[in-house]
Amino acid sequence: MRYIALAAVFLGVLSLRPCAVSAADETPPLLHPQWSFDGVFGTYDRAAEQRGFQVYKEVCSACHPVKHLYFRDLTDIGYTEDEVKAIASTYQVTNEQPNDQGQMFQRPGRPSDPIPGPFPNDQAARAANNGALPPDLSMIVKARDGGADYVFSILNGYKDPPPGFKMLTGMNYNEYFPGHQIAMPPPLSDGAVTFADGTPNTVPQMAHDVVTFLTWAAEPNLEARHRDGFKVMMFLIVVAGVFYATKRKIWAAAH
């Protein structure tokens, strides 16, 4: 009886957590597509990641940086070292140190460089975007409640505002965004990118792929985490079993 009460209290506390998001504004429940990285054995779909990187590069990167990603990280999503070198060299980056004349200079990117963002600093980003700061995308999936589902829903959530809804100038209606007014114009449209592997370039498909890429960007160690976690848990189950049997044997005579 006591145990049931305790379990109920514990579960109650756990289940009450998500209530923190206010239910007052009518936001539909987030879309939840099938993610390759969901679940205990989840891994990233490499092809989707690479398509997602393409979407990021050709669409998102016009405004959004991926501050925590380096070119070298791209080997994680299935590019070879040579491919990564080739990708890096298509970017111009500012060298960290000045040259012999004391001048800062541009050079082709190397795998050890961070992937450069579209703007030199936040002020420049705001100036180019009507005062709004396009957030860093390398953390976006972890930095929003709802994670991958939330980002996917935002990308698919653009609609005409309901009749009578007052829009501020320069804002866009998005049914999943808190307050429904988002500064970012609809970033994706059917056919915005052409995938080399012939995957249909619809908005949901591109959103799915870019969110897979961004989830990897936010949580690059997810696969190792899932793999190690399984081993650790299996080991602990065996250990717990051995300890329990030993405990039973030691206590057999005492109780």
Binding site: K142, R225, H226, D228, G229, A240, K247, I250
Partner: peptide, 28 residues
């Protein structure tokens, strides 16, 4: 031995959070 058994069970729960729900208790 009783503490060790309890420890193994606890570590199972702890590991679940570390490996499968690391940000569940945190704030985005």
């Amino acid at each position: 031995i009783k503490d060790l058994f309890g420890l193994a069970v606890f570590l199972l729960i702890y590991s679940y959070f570390i490996f499968y729900a690391p940000n569940f208790l945190g704030n985005a």
